Computed example of a mutant assay.
Amino acid sequence: MESIEAIIQQQQLAGKLFGGFFGLEVEQHRVLTNGKLSRHPYPAAFSSRRHNPYLKTDFCDNMFELVAPPVQGATAAVQNLKYLQQIVNDHLAADERIWPLSIMAPLSADDLAFATTFNTRQWMADYHDYLGAKYGIARELMAGVHVNFSLHRDLIAALFAASGQSDLAAFKNHLYFRLAQGFVAHRWLFTYLFGASPVLANPLKGMPDNLAFPVRSLRSSDFGYTNFSSETITYSSLGAQLDQLKRFVAEGKFYSLHEFYGPVRLKSRGANSDDLIAHGTERLEFRAFDLDPLSRAGISNDTLNFLEVFLAYWLVADQEADLTEADEKNQAVALQHPHQEFDWTKERGLALLDNLDAFVAKYGAPKEYQA
C-alpha cells in the first residue's frame, strides 16, 4: 500500500481530512441553590431514559447524560449539545442549577448516601451498585465530556480501495486503533491544554492523603475517571487489548466490557468485541475531557478542532506511537500544579505544535484549524 499521504495527494482528498463527524455526550449534575444535590425527580417530560436517545441519566438521577447526535464539524456538534442543554434548562425546578465543573462541590454524608440510592433506572441497578461499591460514590459522581469522532466515510473508502486489502472491518480497526494509540501517546498534551479539575472536595477511594492541590486535572489522573492502575488495559495492539478485556470479564475483574474506562475506546455497531471484529470500528470515543467551565456547552469548538487537527496529522504521519511511559507522563502532568510545567512538556509540546502548524498549511486546512 502506498503511504496515506501519497494517496491523499493523488486523489485530492485533503478536504476530507478536516471533514470528520462529532457526537458529544456530556455528564452534568443538577444541584440546588443551597449547594446540595438536587432531590427533584428526573423530569417526566423527558420520557423513558431507557429509550430516549438524547436525554438520559448516569450514576444517579440528578446526573444528566446528554447525548447529541453526530454531525459534521465542531461548530455544529457543540450547537447540537447546546440545544439539548437548553431543553434541560427549561425543565429545571426554580431552585435547581447545573453544576459547571467535573468535580462536585463539598457533599455531606447525607448527599453521598442520597446519591447512592437516587437511581430509578432499575435495569441498571446491579451495575450501579457494583460501581459504587468498587470505585466509591465520589469517583462515580465525576462528570465530563465523551467525544465521539469518525473520519469522513469517503476518506476511509478511498484509503481502503487503494490499500489492496479485502477485509474492510479489519482495515477500519487498524486505522482507528492507530489513531487511538496516537492519542494515548500524547494524552499528556491534551491534559495540559484542557485539564480543568484542579481541586477535590470529597475524598476519593485509594487516593493518597498527601496529594497537594491545586492540580491540573484530577479527573485525568490515576485517581480520577479511570480503572484502577492494577487493571490498566493495554494499547499495544487491538488483539492484545481485546484479549485482556475478555479475560478481565471472564475472571470477574470487570463487570462487563462497559467497565473499560480507558482514555479512548473503539466503538462498533454493537456492544461487544465480536461486533468490532465483524463490522469494524465506526467511531472513536474519547473519554479524557474534563468539563470546560469557560464554555457554556462544557466543551468548546477550539478543543474539538484541535483534536481533529491532531487526528488528521496522526493519520497522515508515517510514525508509530511511542507508548513508553505514556501513562506515567500523563499522570505527572495531570497532578502537577497548573502554573508549573516540565522542561520536556514544553520541548515536546512546541515541537508537536510546529508539526501541526506545518501540516495545516500544507493541506490548506480551513481557517478555524489554522487559528
Rank of each mutant, 00 (worst) to 15 (best):
M1D: 12
S3F: 02
S3P: 00
A6L: 08
Q9N: 13
Q10L: 07
L13E: 13
A14N: 07
G15P: 08
F18H: 07
G19N: 09
G19P: 10
G20V: 09
F21N: 06
R30M: 01
R30F: 08
V31S: 06
V31M: 07
T33I: 09
N34S: 12
G35N: 08
H40E: 12
H40S: 10
P41T: 10
A44K: 04
A45G: 07
A45Y: 12
A45D: 13
F46P: 00
N52E: 11
L55I: 01
K56Y: 13
T57A: 04
F59S: 01
A68D: 13
P70Y: 07
P70D: 08
V71A: 14
G73W: 05
T75I: 07
V78H: 00
V78I: 14
K82R: 11
Y83Q: 08
I87L: 13
D90R: 08
A94D: 14
R97E: 13
L101M: 11
L101S: 07
S102L: 02
L107K: 00
A109T: 03
D110G: 02
D111T: 08
D111S: 10
D111M: 13
R121W: 09
Q122L: 13
W123I: 15
D126Y: 11
D129T: 06
L131R: 06
E140R: 05
M142P: 07
M142G: 03
A143R: 10
F149L: 14
L151E: 06
D154M: 03
A158G: 13
A161V: 10
D167G: 08
N173S: 14
H174I: 11
F177R: 00
Q181V: 01
H186V: 10
R187N: 07
W188G: 00
L193M: 07
F194S: 01
G195Y: 02
G195R: 02
A196L: 00
A196H: 08
A201R: 02
K205T: 12
M207S: 14
F213G: 00
F213H: 06
F213W: 04
V215H: 04
V215D: 04
L218T: 05
G224W: 01
F228V: 10
S229T: 06
E231Y: 09
T232H: 06
I233G: 07
T234G: 00
S237W: 15
G239I: 12
L242M: 11
L242I: 13
L242W: 07
D243A: 03
A250H: 11
P263E: 11
L266S: 03
K267V: 14
D274I: 14
H279C: 08
R287H: 09
D290Y: 02
P293Y: 01
L294F: 11
S295T: 02
R296S: 14
I299T: 06
T303I: 06
T303M: 15
F306G: 01
E308H: 10
V309H: 04
F310M: 05
L311F: 15
L315W: 10
V316Y: 12
L323G: 06
A326P: 00
A326W: 04
E328A: 11
K329S: 02
Q331Y: 01
V333T: 12
A334T: 12
A334W: 14
A334Q: 12
H337M: 04
H337T: 02
Q340T: 01
Q340G: 01
K346P: 04
G349Y: 02
L352N: 06
N355K: 15
N355I: 02
A358Y: 09
A358G: 05
V360D: 03
K367E: 14
A371R: 05
